[in-house]
Structure formats: structure tokens, C-alpha cells
């Protein structure tokens, strides 16, 4: 097998807090092939966003490797990293906060081009900006507008245009649609998928919205408290969820079904345990209805239960 485009190996990100070590991302292993979309799902605070930011070295990893085309970018120096950042980009969750309110639309999109020094000529650069705006479906007349004058969908398009400016190969999408209306969400998702088809992009798509992730991802990784508990192709995961946590997540998707009227949904009990100095064993064990004594000790390694389907639960089948 050829080297995958992006390989995350034993990636850890701990934060020091007064209470102890916060294990935001704990020993995550994932691979993303060129042209694929890896959906990362999990509830709030499970370390999804931290994972995305650590992969791009917006946060320095505590340990572990991020291999991009076989090279470990966590060991890159400043200059190498600047070059790598051209190809590894990010789309942010909040289209209100992620755009500098003092810069016009054209200036925002031009920023990565200026930083990368790709264009010496201003005219050429703004031609490129115009082209990018067309790609993401922004009218050229908005060039001199300011972000606050535009709606959420248009702002997110600006964010996408900025991410595309330097012809990236891999984009981390950190909940790019969760701040938008449902109708706009569909537009943005379709735009992202079209772009993927046209430019062969790879995405790491971070979200808590299972319907979104089902729509866009080819593979899904389920995270719980900083750990990846299940990884499989999208259809496989939705058809045969193996980890009790994944099962609970999928069971929580509302289904329109008249025969279910009046029946109670089976929901997860209890709260997420603290990610600060977590207890050994399965982190989901305190909430797991199948939990037994063995779950509270040892490390839960991902194991393959069928081709390409990995689960971190010793009892899952």
C-alpha cells in the first residue's frame, strides 16, 4: 500500500490545568487517503477540535506524529512548516469570529496569498482572488464589502475561499456548518463536496451532527474523551455500529416513524467523566450499559473486527 496522504500516529495533546493533566487528545491513530473525507464525530468536549488543530500544528502536540505524504510535520522547522501550511488548510466553525472585521472580503482572501508570497504582482493576486470568489459562489461586487455586512453563509464562503487560496491538498473543517441555518448548511456542504470532486481535496470533517457526517464522509472516526473509539467506512459504521457509544449516538438520531409514537428513546445516562487525569480502562465504561469489571483496567486498543472496521471495545463484535 502506498503511503497515505495523512497519517496520524499516537497523537497526544495534554493541557496542564491546576487539577492535573487534561487529556484532550489521547493516543489517536487515523489515516486519510487522498480524495477522502474523514468525519470525526463526538459530543462537545471530546477533543475533536483539539485534534484538528493539533494535526495542523496550531497547537503543538504533546507527543505523536502527523505524517503528511510520509513526512512528519511535527518536526518541521519554520520554513518547512510555512510551505506545508500552503497545502494543509483549515475552515473554521464560526464565520463571525474567523474573519478579521477590519479587512475587506478581498483582503481576507488575499491574506494567505500575501503570506505565501506566491504573487509578486498585485493585479495577478487580485485576479486570483476574483477567481476564488467565483469558485465558492461569491459575487465579485462583494470584494470590497466587510464581513459584518454579509450573512453567515456568505461569510463561510469567504472562509472557504481563504482556505482554498493556496491550492491546499488537505483541509480540516472544524464544524463548518454548525453555526449556519439548515438551508445554508446544505449549500455549503454541497460546495465542499463539489470542490472535493474538482480539486481532489481531502477533508477532515469535524462535527457533532451525524446526518451531516453521513452525507459528506467516506470514513468516520468516533471520538470519546480524547480517544478514537471506533473507525470504519461510513456505510459500515451506520450499518454495524460496534462500540456501545457509537450505538448510543446512532440511536439518538430521531427517526420519523409512526409506530414509534409514545415509545421512549433509549438515551445515554450520566455525564461525561472528566478528561483531567482519566482513570485507566475504557473511558466510556461509567456510562456503558454493558460495562463489566474488565472495562476498568488496561488500555483499550483499537482492534479490527472486520475489514477496515476498528473498535476500541474488547466485547464488540
Amino acid at each position: 500500500m502506498a503511503t497515505p496522504m495523512l497519517e496520524i500516529k499516537h497523537l497526544k495533546k495534554y493541557f496542564s490545568t491546576p487539577a492535573g493533566q487534561l487529556h484532550a487528545v489521547d493516543d489517536v491513530n487515523l489515516t486519510i487517503e487522498a480524495g477522502q473525507t474523514l468525519g470525526v464525530v463526538g459530543e462537545s468536549g471530546c477533543g475533536k477540535s483539539t485534534l484538528g488543530r493539533t494535526v495542523l500544528r496550531l497547537l503543538e502536540p504533546t507527543s505523536g506524529e502527523v505524517l503528511y505524504n510520509g513526512q512528519d510535520i511535527t518536526k518541521f522547522n519554520r520554513k518547512q512548516m510555512l510551505a506545508a501550511r500552503q497545502e494543509l488548510q483549515m475552515i473554521f466553525q464560526d464565520p463571525y469570529a474567523s474573519l478579521n472585521p477590519r479587512l475587506s472580503v478581498a483582503e481576507i482572501i488575499a491574506e494567505p496569498l500575501i503570506v505565501s508570497k506566491k504573487y509578486k504582482n498585485k493585479k495577478e493576486m487580485y485576479e486570483r482572488v476574483g477567481q476564488l470568489m467565483e469558485t465558492v459562489g461569491l459575487a465579485p461586487r462583494l470584494m470590497n464589502s466587510y464581513p459584518h455586512e454579509l450573512d453567515g453563509g456568505r461569510r463561510q464562503r469567504i472562509g472557504i475561499a481563504r482556505a482554498l487560496a493556496t491550492d491546499p491538498r488537505f483541509i480540516v473543517c472544524d464544524e463548518p456548518v454548525s453555526a449556519l441555518d439548515v438551508s445554508i448548511q446544505a449549500q455549503i456542504l454541497n460546495l465542499l463536496m463539489d470542490l472535493q470532486d474538482q480539486q481532489g481535496l481531502s477533508y477532515m470533517f469535524i462535527t457533532h451532527d451525524l446526518s451531516v457526517v453521513k452525507h459528506i464522509s467516506s470514513h468516520i472516526a468516533v471520538m470519546y474523551l480524547g480517544q478514537c473509539v471506533e473507525y470504519a467506512e461510513t456505510e459500515e459504521l451506520f450499518a454495524h455500529p460496534a462500540h456501545p457509544y457509537t450505538q448510543a449516538l446512532l440511536a439518538a438520531i430521531p427517526v420519523i416513524d409512526i409506530t414509534r409514537r409514545g415509545k421512549r428513546w433509549e438515551t445515554l445516562q450520566g455525564e461525561v467523566t472528566s478528561p483531567v487525569n482519566p482513570a485507566p480502562g475504557c473511558r466510556f465504561a461509567p456510562r456503558c450499559k454493558y460495562a463489566c469489571e474488565g472495562c476498568h483496567e488496561g488500555n483499550m486498543e483499537l482492534r479490527q473486527i472486520s475489514a477496515g472496521h476498528w473498535v476500541a471495545c474488547p466485547y464488540a463484535k
Partner: peptide, 26 residues
């Protein structure tokens, strides 16, 4: 702490440029 500063960092913007172009104007 705002996301647009992080976005600038994600493009590889230098600290000086982040300060002069993104932080001080705001």
C-alpha cells in the same frame, strides 16, 4: 484568542504580521 488570529496562523502568517495587520487594527 479569536478565531481569525488562528486562521491567520493557519496560513503561516508571521507573528509580526499577525500583530500589525490583524491585532492592532482591531
Amino acid at each position: 484568542g479569536q478565531e481569525f488570529v488562528e486562521a491567520a496562523r493557519a496560513c503561516g502568517t508571521s507573528n509580526a504580521r499577525i500583530i500589525l495587520r490583524h491585532i492592532i487594527p482591531n
